[in-house]
Amino acid sequence: MSRPVTPPVTRPVTPPVIRVVLADDERMVRTALRVVLDAEPDLEVVGEASDGAEAVTVVRELRPDVVLMDVRMPGIDGIRATERLVASMGGDAPRIVVVTTFENDAYVYDALRAGAAGFLLKRVAVEELVGAVRLVARGDSLLFPSALRGLAAAYGPRGRAAAPPWAARLTDREADVLRLMARGLTNAEIAARLDVGPATVKTHVAAVLAKTGARDRTQAVIAAYESGFIVPAEQL
């Protein structure tokens, strides 16, 4: 008589923990953010900073995955801190999300120019905050098309500048993909719009990032607005 075969034990896959640093000059804000994020099984606040200079030091030491960076802080603000981290850490820089009170703020646009992956309002719902951290941690960008378009119109270059060198290197399809990225479409939505496969869109997006020299989708869109390749009024 054969013995019954014992099925293998399957253990649930534990998602990797996303390590977060909080940079805000208000202790109560940092405490509230810590409580929210630490309540999630896949998120962990590993460090805090009360100004931009401290944020740079803490991030370089702890190497988190994501930084929630207040824009307006004493001394070195969130913009300068973002610039220093991106410049000094390059591809090893964490994903930086700037946190602000007002979305139509020149500080926000400057932070995105400096290399931030996106921005959040301080009044954002808990679910949106948690979702945003997970989103940028996996390499996506936190794009709000209408807000970014408004920021570019208010604080970016006026009119259409001379075509940037990278524009000539884009294929027609890559140019279409960049314009749709600026509208906030996901890869799946772009694929449906252009009637191609998601894998093809992914290839085009990678080519756009490489040719524009952008770290992510947000930086590619900023480059498109800054160069005049896309004029905000055309995205209405």
Rank of each mutant, 00 (worst) to 15 (best):
M1Q: 11
P4L: 01
P8N: 03
V9I: 09
V13M: 05
T14Q: 09
V21C: 10
E26C: 13
R27V: 08
T31D: 08
A32V: 08
E40N: 03
D42Q: 06
V45T: 06
D51K: 00
G52E: 12
E54M: 11
A55F: 08
V59R: 04
R60K: 14
R60A: 12
R60L: 07
V66R: 05
D70H: 11
D70E: 12
D70M: 14
V71P: 08
V71Q: 09
P74W: 14
G75D: 15
R80M: 14
R84G: 07
V86G: 02
G91Q: 07
A93Y: 14
T101G: 14
E103A: 13
D105V: 04
A106V: 15
A106T: 14
A117F: 03
L120V: 00
L120E: 01
A125T: 04
V126H: 12
V133P: 01
V136F: 02
V136T: 02
R138F: 13
G139W: 02
D140H: 07
D140C: 03
D140P: 02
L143H: 01
A154C: 03
Y155T: 04
P157Y: 00
P157R: 05
W166V: 05
A168G: 11
L170W: 02
E174D: 06
D176W: 04
V177Q: 05
L185I: 09
R193T: 15
L194G: 01
D195L: 01
V196S: 01
V196Q: 00
V196I: 06
P198K: 00
T200M: 10
V205L: 06
A206V: 13
R215V: 08
T218C: 13
T218L: 13
Y225K: 05
E226F: 10
E226I: 05
E234C: 10
Q235T: 15
